[in-house]
Computed example of a mutant assay.
Amino acid sequence: MAINGESFETSLEKLREMSEKIKSPETDLEGSIRCYEEGMKYYKNCEKILAEAKQKIETFELEQ
């Protein structure tokens, strides 16, 4: 279900970490760009997991 074996919770936490790093005054522009790119991977993983869960719920509801 998860990309690279990352759970939703793990991906969400890493996404939060990337967000905090971007906000940090100690992070330079290049570092911010790297954090953004990495954060987008975690965001897309979260989005994929949620879409799969939604589909399972909709399928379950149709079967009821």
Rank of each mutant, 00 (worst) to 15 (best):
P25W: 03
I57Q: 10
N45Q: 03
E61Q: 13
E61D: 10
K54W: 07
K23W: 01
I49T: 04
A53H: 05
E20R: 12
K23T: 03
C35G: 02
A2Y: 07
E38N: 06
E38P: 02
K23C: 03
L50D: 04
K21W: 02
Q55I: 03
L50F: 07
E30F: 08
Y36K: 04
N4Y: 12
P25V: 03
E13T: 10
E26R: 06
M18H: 10
K21S: 06
E63F: 09
K41S: 05
E37T: 07
K56Y: 07
I33P: 00
K44I: 02
T59H: 12
T27C: 07
L50S: 09
L29G: 00
S32M: 10
K41H: 05
K54T: 14
C35I: 00
R16A: 11
Q64S: 09
P25F: 02
E38D: 10
Q55K: 15
Q64M: 13
I22F: 01
E17M: 08
K44N: 14
G39Q: 04
E13P: 04
G31R: 06
K44F: 07
I22G: 01
M40I: 07
T59P: 05
K44D: 13
S19T: 15
A51T: 08
K21Y: 02
F8V: 06
R34E: 10
M40K: 09
I49Y: 09
S32L: 00
L50C: 11
N4L: 14
I57E: 09
E52H: 03
E37Q: 12
E63Y: 05
K54G: 05
E26W: 02
C46R: 06
G5K: 05
I22T: 03
E61T: 09
I3H: 11
A51N: 12
E17D: 14
S7L: 12
S24L: 02
E58M: 15
S11A: 12
C35Q: 07
E13Q: 13
R16D: 09
C35D: 13
M1N: 11
R16K: 15
C35E: 05
L15P: 02
K21V: 08
E17A: 11
L50V: 14
C46D: 07
L29R: 10
I3D: 15
I22L: 11
Y42F: 13
K54R: 13
E38F: 01
E58A: 14
M18N: 15
M18K: 15
E38H: 01
L50R: 09
A51Y: 08
K48G: 06
G5L: 08
A51G: 04
G39Y: 06
G31P: 05
F60M: 11
I33G: 00
E26H: 04
K14N: 10
I3N: 13
E17Y: 10
I3P: 01
S7A: 12
E58C: 09
F60H: 12
G5C: 05
K41R: 11
E63C: 05
E6N: 10
K44R: 14
S24F: 01
E52R: 05
A51S: 11
E47Q: 14
S19R: 15
K44S: 09
D28N: 15
S11C: 07
L29W: 01
K41G: 04
E37H: 05
N45F: 00
G31C: 06
E26N: 07
K48R: 15
E61W: 13
L15T: 05
E61H: 10
F60D: 04
C35T: 01
Y43P: 00
C35K: 06
T59S: 14
T27M: 09
D28W: 04
T10S: 14
N4G: 08
L50G: 01
E13R: 11
D28L: 05
